[in-house]
Design a protein around this nucleic acid. Sequence first.
DNA 1: GTATGTGCAAAGAGTTTGCAGGGTA
DNA 2: TACCCTGCAAACTCTTTGCACATAC
Lengths: 144, 144
Amino acid sequence: MAAPKKRFDEMVAKLKEHGYRLTPQRMAVLKALADSDDHPTIEKIFKRVKPDFSSTSLATIYKTVTLLKELGEVYELSLSEGNRYDAMKPFPHPHLICVNCDTVTDVDINHLADLAAEMSRKTGYRILNQRVDFFGICTDCQAE
Amino acid sequence: MAAPKKRFDEMVAKLKEHGYRLTPQRMAVLKALADSDDHPTIEKIFKRVKPDFSSTSLATIYKTVTLLKELGEVYELSLSEGNRYDAMKPFPHPHLICVNCDTVTDVDINHLADLAAEMSRKTGYRILNQRVDFFGICTDCQAE
DNA sequence: GTATGTGCAAAGAGTTTGCAGGGTA
DNA sequence: TACCCTGCAAACTCTTTGCACATAC
């Protein structure tokens, strides 16, 4: 677990810094995001916020997550099965995705920056970001 | 251009082989796909089919593309801006995507299979496929 | 002739937006 | 107090589905 309190405080600071109001609804979303290392869907964030703040609406979750995305505090991983959100590592990074149970795991790839540089050199593109994801069956699902 | 006639014939053969009927609508979609090396959207395929077959509906395009996808003759590249389709290389392969003009280009990466094997070894996942895409600004858009 | 395919329109899923009332700063 | 934020419902986009008619084989 990557210090949830620290991420929460960072995100609160970012909102303050940009003059956004610290409403209880926003705090609840930040808390849910800072506690989630499983790349939750919007629906899942909604369900995690509800116990703390039962009157919250889905629209507010969407608005808050979109805001945090624009501030660079949340990374959106768009999959054909639906979008997933990551507030732990709010920047592009490689994933392993189990096509059976939809678990999303972070992975490290050593020479990813080199790969982007090579693409840029070969094609003339100015590379802004990349997406490297592997789809497969996780060990738990293989055991079933 | 990767021999449009050949791809068209291959796709026709695949439909026949599986007992699907060769309707004029389907032929028009196959032709549009076999002629398109720009990773078209469904809407674009629709527009390319219309001149040949003005009564075609969007629903039929969706149904035909979905069928070809299931038969492994079309690869679906799902982007947050909308899905793109590739009948030239109907399998996962790396892309360069211009975030300004939405152009999608194929690229080669030498050791992609090695990368997947390394992931599998590190994590225990059985890797089925992967997605490696780079987002940036193409040379044309840089010049503007 | 018969089952499959088409085309329309309606239904769905996921997400965004307009607006009136409420709450933060 | 003033403006921003919330929550509801409606709108929107993309895609799928049900059904009656048409048609490939």
